[in-house]
Write a protein that binds this DNA or RNA. Structure first.
Lengths: 339, 339
DNA sequence: CTGTTAGCGCGTTCAG
DNA sequence: CTGAACGCGCTAACAG
């Protein structure tokens, strides 16, 4: 019961070439036959076989997206937007979640190459030799690349990020303006350039405002909420600042919980700022003051650039840096208001 | 610089048929040549062209997964697990997020059919005529189907759900045991069979414990957190129960926030139970007592069943009902403890 | 055990 | 404007 282009041609009383032309909108033909063929295709629920056309070297109309973890709300939302815009452009999306495993990342590159995607969006920090090697192969195939969130460019590619440094800057500025002097920073893996930049921006803010900074003001933690709670809790035992800036909402949540566990109230005793403006920021108590990334816009821009590159409308690479935004909720108050 | 099976054959000094055999592990041949060919494939980074093999009617080693919303933490986690197990079995996953649009759902069915996936997992309530029609087509192609979370079976297929009814039952029992009598229920779209069942279980618990139930104890709300907050808040103005059971964590979060906005403290003034045990339950304040769905297990089971069906190791359809579990955190206390 | 050959469904010439 | 014929990379008979 499979419909092929031959079936359509036969029922329309034309040759497959003619049908092919209406499918691809190429060549010229009488408007009448075109319409008739379209009607027949409709009637037969005919869909061209992707594999056959991909085999002859045409586009697959699919793009690959690699993120560290789909179950992380931030990436979940990003993926959703990418998918949304990609579909608007007629592309389907193949998602890969690496769980922060370079090995899995490398596997995805192979896989996506095998599936011959037309383009690739990466939101992971492609680091390992293995990954780089695999990526090289797909670069050799002239598959357009686009990088999201990260700013490393082992190969020429389009990039969309936010100004992480500025994000860190305005977050810290906000605390400074409220009157906080004793601020501590929570960050994760230093291989994440975005985290580093956020901290960098924070330090710049401190500097510009004439506030001193010591390495001891930084808490380095891990990815899991549990681990972070532990790490932050221990730190708080030794020193209790009036404010904490965490490089993402997950850490900020962990901070709130670690603090509360020790009888430290947020925001009364401790102000907290997060980063990403995920759902988490909305549901915690108190709702989190955080730095918002324009996820929808990021998704839109990166898809736009990638599709343009795929369709050859754009040959040079570019980099778009979007602005983060401070979202003030209730986790930050003036220190005077603190007990 | 594309490697084809011909290149490998040439360099190995054999015919393509032989290479094809080692790729597919069919036929017999000298161990030596097999190894030699494998070595050459390795050396050349040769990957068989999927489209070519799919074209000849072989499996594509891919399965489609359709969920309502990837950015919802519950589905994000489910998808993650499905992907994990599917990859272990050698299948790649194509994810579709419908945003609760039947239209998008229908589109995904077409798309997945076109991509000739080997099987399909659905976590949406396939309702619309359009969807059903498209689904019919893929059923006609003998593509195995599996349904997750939902229990509607328009066609024969494997099913994995939790016992939603039991979930509602134990959640309500928990509240009853704590001594609550005045319990209100928050639910969403009634087309979601899972929500209905949870409420059904709750009513059974009430009944078994000789507590009366009135329709007025149910708050029907919408999907967005914002909308839910509004709806619940309004209800609370008219009547303040001692406990609320929400059919998912999102509603539970909304409940907590709506309550707090009106000066009602959780759990002191109001106990709250959620459902799903998503990250949200961990980060809210107070951490949410909720009903946990064994997401990893659900993902594992459904992938297992689907793969068995795909590989023909299983012809009959089955239904697996997993048990929900009560996770007691801090959003529920005895009413006596309440002010 | 291995090589040969005919498709798979479609895009693309190239003559009509 | 149309139709026949070839090739894409691979699998599956069928020969050897």
């Amino acid at each position: 019961m499979k419909k092929t282009i031959y079936d359509i041609a036969k029922h329309a009383g034309v040759s497959i070439a003619t049908v092919s032309r209406v499918i691809n909108n190429t060549g010229r033909m009488s408007d009448e036959t075109r319409k008739r063929i379209l009607r027949i295709m409709e009637e037969f629920d005919y869909l061209p076989n992707m594999h056959a056309s991909a085999l002859t070297g045409k586009k697959t109309n699919s793009i690959g997206v690699i993120v560290p973890d789909v179950s992380n709300p931030f990436f979940g939302e990003i993926v959703k937007f990418i998918q949304l815009f990609a579909e608007e452009q007629g592309y389907t999306v193949i998602i890969g979640s690496t769980d922060y495993h370079p090995e899995k990342e490398a596997n995805y590159f192979s896989l996506l190459k095998q599936k011959s995607v037309d383009g690739l969006i990466m939101a992971t920090s492609v680091d390992s030799d293995e990954s780089l090697e695999r990526l090289q192969e797909i670069v050799d195939d002239n598959v357009p690349l686009a990088m999201l969130t990260h700013d490393r460019m082992p190969f020429p590619m389009d990039v969309v990020t936010i100004d992480d440094s500025m994000g860190g800057y305005i977050a810290t500025n906000h605390l400074l303006e409220l009157g906080h002097k004793d601020i501590v920073f929570v960050t994760g893996s230093q291989t994440m350039t975005s985290f580093r930049d956020r901290i960098k921006g924070a330090r710049q803010s401190l500097e510009h405002n004439g506030v001193e900074f010591h390495e001891s003001q930084i808490i380095k933690s891990h990815f899991s909420i549990e681990g972070a709670k532990e790490d932050i809790g221990q730190y708080l035992e030794t020193h209790l600042p009036t404010a904490i800036f965490a490089v993402n909402d997950v850490f900020a949540c962990a901070t709130i919980q670690a603090a509360r566990k020790r009888g430290v109230k947020v925001p009364e005793d401790l102000s907290v700022v997060g980063f990403d403006n995920t759902v988490l920021a909305e549901v915690t108590d108190p709702p989190l003051t955080t730095i918002s990334q324009p996820k929808a816009d990021m998704g839109k821009q990166i898809v736009r650039m990638l599709v343009e590159a795929i369709e050859g409308k754009k040959t040079s690479k570019s980099k778009i840096i979007l602005s983060p935004e401070l979202i003030i909720r209730q986790s930050t108050v003036k220190p005077e208001a603190q007990v």
